[in-house]
């Protein structure tokens, strides 16, 4: 009796160990539970099992650290040939790679596929005087530090770069757009609530996390940074329609270790493509503010490497990378 509590304690620990050690495939979310990468792993992991594309439920491991750098280093050094492992990533991870903040460049991993993309948006509160992208650019051109703009990444992160790409496309000089006030919050939700509270005037972030605030009418989309209008919000214009040829996708996808065989790599791409082809995925993606987009296998590998090069060029141009 007196050892009961200890035994139960050991049982709890044992349960946790046996979960971590299960033979099922594993998806590493290189962030804390609750974020975008965690969502990617959990949702797609669950759907792969529901669609019977894998035999056992996919085990999700959270490995936060260095905006994904810790997981990248871990996979590179000790699990490069683990065919049962996939890692969630996105444009954010590639931005870090492009700016030299990961232990290696894109060539050390095998890039599997992207299944959907979040769309970057420029947001203002519902009663803002800014009615269009032109209004916003007009104010910033007159005085770059007139508005405080917030987003979920640090200065030089993807939310910030997308905003500066717009300023650049509108003809603002580097010296001018460097003075735009940038405020970082711990996610798009906090950034938007702080904007509603009047602390900042504009938010540049991904649509998915904050779509509820657009639906409820608390905030307006000034511009969607996509090729076409976002299906969920057909009334919101794109930046392209307003004369600025800028897109800012934040795709969601996976990589696996660089030592994984062609067969295992091909099998994963195949599974993910089968999942992408289901109506279930398209429905889930849209419910979560993602646009279903497929790029897989060699095509995706080339796409990621190209994107990293382009981002590196942009980062140098705007002075984020020396």
């Amino acid at each position: 009796m007196r050892n009961l509590s200890k035994l139960l304690g050991a049982a709890v620990v044992w349960t946790s160990l046996s979960f971590a050690g299960a033979t099922a495939a594993e998806c590493i979310a290189p962030a804390d539970p609750g974020g975008g990468w965690d969502f990617t792993c959990r949702t797609i992991g669950k759907m792969l099992f529901d669609q019977k594309l894998v035999d056992a439920p996919i085990q999700v491991t959270n490995m936060p650290g260095g905006v994904g750098a810790v997981a990248y280093a871990k996979v590179m050094s000790s699990r490069a040939d683990d065919a049962d492992l996939i890692v969630a990533t996105s444009t954010v991870g590639v931005t870090q790679i492009a700016q030299g903040k990961y232990p290696a460049d894109t060539s050390v991993m095998r890039w599997l596929a992207m299944l959907g993309s979040d769309v970057g948006v420029i947001l203002v509160p519902k009663d803002s005087e800014l009615k269009s992208l032109d209004d916003l650019i007009g104010v910033l051109k007159k005085d770059p530090s007139a508005l405080a703009v917030a987003g979920s990444t640090a200065a030089g992160g993807w939310d910030h770069i997308r905003l500066l790409m717009l300023a650049q496309a509108a003809g603002m000089s580097g010296d001018a757009y460097k003075q735009i006030r940038w405020v970082q919050f711990d996610g798009g939700g906090p950034a938007v609530t702080q904007m509603i509270g009047g602390q900042v005037q504009v938010v540049s972030t991904d649509l998915g996390e904050i779509a509820g605030f657009v639906e409820s009418g608390d905030v307006r989309i000034l511009a969607a940074l996509s090729d076409e209008r976002v299906p969920a919000f057909p009334d919101s214009p794109t930046a392209k329609e307003q004369g600025l040829d800028v897109t800012g996708y934040n795709w969601r996808g996976f990589y696996t270790g660089g030592g994984v065989s062609d067969d295992a790599y091909g099998a994963w791409v195949d599974r993910l493509q089968k999942l992408y082809d289901t109506d279930d995925w398209k429905k889930t993606a849209q419910e979560n503010g993602l646009v279903p987009v497929w790029r897989g296998g060699a095509e995706f590998d080339a796409y990621v490497k190209d994107q990293a090069e382009k981002m590196n060029a942009i980062s140098r141009e705007i002075g984020v990378v020396k």
Binding site: G34, F39, T43, K46, A211, G212, E287
Partner: peptide, 13 residues
């Protein structure tokens, strides 16, 4: 994360 994995989307609505 739990709510999202149960298809519940917390937010203003």
């Amino acid at each position: 994360a739990l709510l999202i994995s149960l298809n519940v989307q917390p937010g203003p609505l």
